[in-house]
Design a protein around this nucleic acid. Structure first.
Lengths: 206, 206, 206, 206
DNA sequence: GGTTAAGCGAGACGGTACGTCGAGTCTTGAC
DNA sequence: GTCAAGACTCGACGTACCGTCTCGCTTAACC
C-alpha cells in the first residue's frame, strides 16, 4: 500500500467536507463521486486512490464528524439511564434527516461486506458497547440477573428499533422507547420462563 | 393506468422468471433492467410499462413464488411453538442464498418508501401476524400478561434477528434463537420492572 | 451491422456539422468526441455507435461538405490546364487553415490503416484521377509520350507538394507550382534518358 | 536552461532505450510518457526536464541510433548512382518495421512545427543533401541541364515515394524506383517543355 | 572533505477525455 | 394497442495520462 505520509491532508478534508455537505443537500443516492470531486476541487482519481466506494467516503465523513464516545451516565438507576439513551436513539431514527443518511449507508453495507464491517465497528459498536457496559455495571450492582446474556439484551433494545425503522411497521416515539426499555429490562431482571436454554457464549469475553 | 386485460401473460411470466434467475445469479445490485429484458426476450418498455422500478419487479417475482401463509401450529405450548418458528426464521437468515434475496429487497426498501410499504404488507406482515395471532391466543390462555404489548413483543422476537443479520454482530444459530425466545417470553410473561409506562396503542386495534 | 434505416438523420447531420465547426474553430487535435457530442446536442454513444474514431467522423464531415468532383477543364493545352490545377492545389496546401485540417487527418491515417484507405479513396483519389484523366486525354492527343507511366506522372506532380508541405522544406508558391508542372511534363514528354526500364504496370488498367 | 553537466547519463540512456523499445513494441501512438518513465525506471519529471514532448524523446532516440551520413558514391554515372540510393530508400519505406518508425515520427512532425524542423534538419536534410550534392556534381560534369532546379529535382525523387507510402496508392518496388529515377533525370536533363517559368530561388544559395 | 544545491526516483495531485454502461424515453413495424 | 427491437439523450462510471508538484535521497561542485 502507498505510504500514507504522502497523502495530502488538505484534499482529504475537502473531500470529507464535500461528502458531508452533499449528503445533507442532495441525499445519498443522488450524490455522485463526480460531484464530490467537483465540490472538493479535487480530481476524481484522488478519491478513487484512497477510498473503495462512495460508501467508504461517507463512512469516513460520518465517523470523522462524530464526537468520541464517552461512557453513558451511571446514576445507579439502570432503568432511567437506559431510558435516556434509548429515547435519544429512537429520536435519532425518527428524524428524517439523520435517518436518511443512516438508511443510505445501510443500503451500501448490504451490498459490501467489507464496508459493513467498518460501519459496524467504527460507527455502531461504540454505541452498543456503551449500553453493554452500563448493563454490566448494573449486573455487578445486582440489578439484573447474573446469567443474563448481556449482548442479547443489548440487541433486545436496538433490534426492535432497527426493525421498526427499516420496515416502517410503527411510529418511533418516546412512549415506544419507554415500553421497549421496560420490556428489555424485564427480560433481563426477572427469572426466565420456559425450559432452560443453553448458555450463550459472551461475545465480549476475553 | 393501462387496461390490464390487454396484458401479455407470457411476457409477464418471462420477466418474473428472468428477474428471479438474475437475482440469484448476479445478485440484486448488479442486476439491471436491461438484463432482465434481454433475458426475458422482451422490450425494455414492456417492463417500464408495468413496473415502477427494479425493486417492484423483484418484489412481484418473490411474492409470486411464495406459498400462501398458513396459521402457525398451536400446540398449547407457546414456548415450543415460538421456538419452532423463530428457529426457522433464524435458519432462513443464516442461509446465504435466501439471505441474499432478502438483502436485495431490503436495499430497495430503504430507498423507496412506496415499495417498502408493499414489501412490508405483502411479504412480512403475514409472517409477523402469524406470530402475533399465536401470542394473542396465548394471552387468552393466560400464558402471558394481559397488558403485554403484543406488537412490541413480536418485534422483540424479529428485531434482534434483523439486527444481528444486518450488522453481522454475531452468529445466527439455534441456541441463539432459543435464548431469544426465552427472553421475549420472559418480557411478556413476568411482571414488568421499573416505573409504569404509558400503555402503547395497539397497532391492530380497529 | 445495424439496419441503417433506423438511423436518426437529424443526429447525423448535427454531428457532422458540429465536427466541421469545431474543426475550424479549435483545430483537429484539440477537438474531442465529447465536444462534438455536446455541440451537436447528442449523446456520446450516438457517435460511438456509428463511427470508429474521431478521424472517421471528420472524414465523413469533410467528404459530406465536398462538391462532387467534376472533370478538369480541357482547353487542349495540357500545360496550361495542369498549371491551373497544380497552382490551386499548392495554394490549398499553403493556406494555414485548410492545411491544418489535412495535416490532422493525415496524422490519423498514419495510425489507422482502415481510415487511411477511406481517406485515400473518398477524398484524394477523385482529385488524382481528374489529373490522370486529363493526362490520358493529352496522351491521346499526342502531347505526351506514348509509354509515359501516367500514374507516376501524377505522383510526380503531387508527391513533391506533399513532401514540401509535410517536411516544410520550402515555400509553397505559384512559381514553385509552375516549375513543378514544367518538370513533370518534361519528364512525360521528352524521350527518357538513361537505360531502358521495365514498363510499370498501369494501376488503372482494366 | 539547466546546466547540462549535472545530467545523469545513465538515465538519459535508459530513457532513449525504453523509448525505442516501446516504439517498436506498442507503436508510437499507444506509447506514453508514463510508460517510458516506468520502463526506464525513471521519474516522469526527469523526462519532462530534458524533453519538450514525446516526439522530442523519440527523435533523440532515433537520431542517437543512426550512423553519420557519408557522401554518396560518385561513379561518374549519375543514373546508376541515383538508382542505387533511390532503390535503397524505396526498400526502406517498404519495410514494415522501419516504416513504422518513420510513420511515428511523421505523426509528431505534423502536430509540432518545432519538432518538424528538428526532424527535417537532423534526420532528413542530410539524406536529401547527399542526393543534391551528387546532382550538383553531375551538373558540373554537364550531365544535367545548367538551369535545372536541383532542390526540386531532389523533391521529384523523394516526394513521390513519400506520397505513395503515405497514401498507399501503389507498391514500393525496385522497378518503381527505377522508373522514378528515369523520370526525374529526364526532367533534369532534357530541355523543358512548355512556356518558360521564373527561375526558382535556390534554397541552398548562400 | 564537507556543504549544499541540483538532479533524481517516486508518485500524489488537479484535470481532461476516454470509451462503456445503464437509465428511462421514443420510434418503427409486426401482429 | 401491445409487443420486440433497439436508437436516442443523458449522466455517471472507473481508467488512463497529462503535466505539475512535492517528498527524501543521492551525488557531484565548489568551497
Amino acid at each position: 500500500m502507498t505510504a500514507p505520509h504522502r497523502r495530502n491532508e488538505r484534499s482529504r478534508r475537502a473531500i470529507l467536507d464535500a461528502a458531508l455537505a452533499l449528503l445533507t443537500e442532495t441525499g445519498y443516492s443522488r450524490m455522485t463521486i463526480e460531484a464530490i470531486a467537483a465540490r472538493a476541487g479535487v480530481g476524481k482519481q484522488t478519491i478513487y486512490r484512497w477510498w473503495r466506494s462512495k460508501g467508504a467516503v461517507v463512512l469516513d465523513a460520518l465517523v470523522d464528524g462524530l464526537p468520541a464516545a464517552a461512557a453513558l451516565p451511571d446514576t445507579g438507576d439502570i432503568h432511567a439511564d437506559l431510558r435516556a439513551v434509548i429515547r435519544a436513539t429512537v429520536a435519532e431514527f425518527a428524524d428524517p434527516h439523520l435517518s436518511a443518511t443512516t438508511r443510505a449507508l445501510t443500503i451500501e453495507t448490504l451490498a459490501d461486506a467489507e464496508l459493513a464491517a467498518q460501519v459496524r465497528d467504527r460507527l455502531l459498536r461504540p454505541q452498543l458497547d456503551q449500553v453493554r457496559d452500563r448493563l454490566e455495571s448494573a449486573r455487578r450492582a445486582g440489578q439484573i440477573r447474573d446469567d443474563a446474556p448481556l449482548d442479547q439484551v443489548v440487541e433486545l433494545l436496538f433490534g426492535p428499533i432497527y426493525h421498526r425503522w427499516l420496515l416502517r411497521t410503527g411510529p418511533l416515539t418516546e412512549p415506544y422507547a419507554d415500553t421497549l426499555v421496560t420490556l428489555a429490562l424485564t427480560a433481563a431482571c426477572q427469572p426466565t420462563v420456559g425450559p432452560a436454554t443453553e448458555r450463550q457464549p459472551d461475545l465480549h469475553a476475553e
